[in-house]
Amino acid sequence: MTALNEELKRKIIDVLNLEDITPTDIKDDEALFDEGLGLDSIDALELIVLMDKDYGIKLTDPKLGKSIFQSIETMVAYISENRTK
């Protein structure tokens, strides 16, 4: 697990109040929505705020969200390429 993967998992657990879930419970390639972690639409909005606040990434195209928020792996790849802080 890279440092960014670990950091992102901790932030997601914190911001989404995922009680009793630890970073090791979230697999890098596991789906974050639907059958995976079971996140919902409000959680998706929280992830958009997290990307902006912590990594300086403004997601203006909602269509992009589906592919970016597919898993920790896809989020980390997008953050690595686009972060401004």
Binding site: D43, L45, E46, V49, D52
Partner: peptide, 9 residues
């Protein structure tokens, strides 16, 4: 300016 969607709802 970071409104929290989970709070707003």
């Amino acid at each position: 300016f970071y409104p929290r969607p989970a709070t707003f709802v």
